[in-house]
Amino acid sequence: MPFLIDCPNCGRRSPYEFKFGGECKRAPDPGADVKAWCDYLYLYENMSGVQDEWWYHTMGCRSWLKIRRNTVTHEIIEE
């Protein structure tokens, strides 16, 4: 399958129109320690498989989209 992102505003578009916004994860509390913050900022799951991630439609409607993608096959899993 080709890797196309189904944008709710613009339809199925090439990923080249988007900016990858990283894995979906929650920031630690503001007061958390250095380790928690460094883990959050610099350590990625780098998942080989299905993950939730953010994409920003730079060359389209300029919305943030959350998608679930298989990083190996680029298959997008509809929820």
Partner: peptide, 13 residues
């Protein structure tokens, strides 16, 4: 401006 727009949207997404 384009980056700021993305940035604002990112922090309330």
């Amino acid at each position: 401006a384009p980056v700021t727009e993305e940035w604002f949207a990112r922090w309330c997404r």
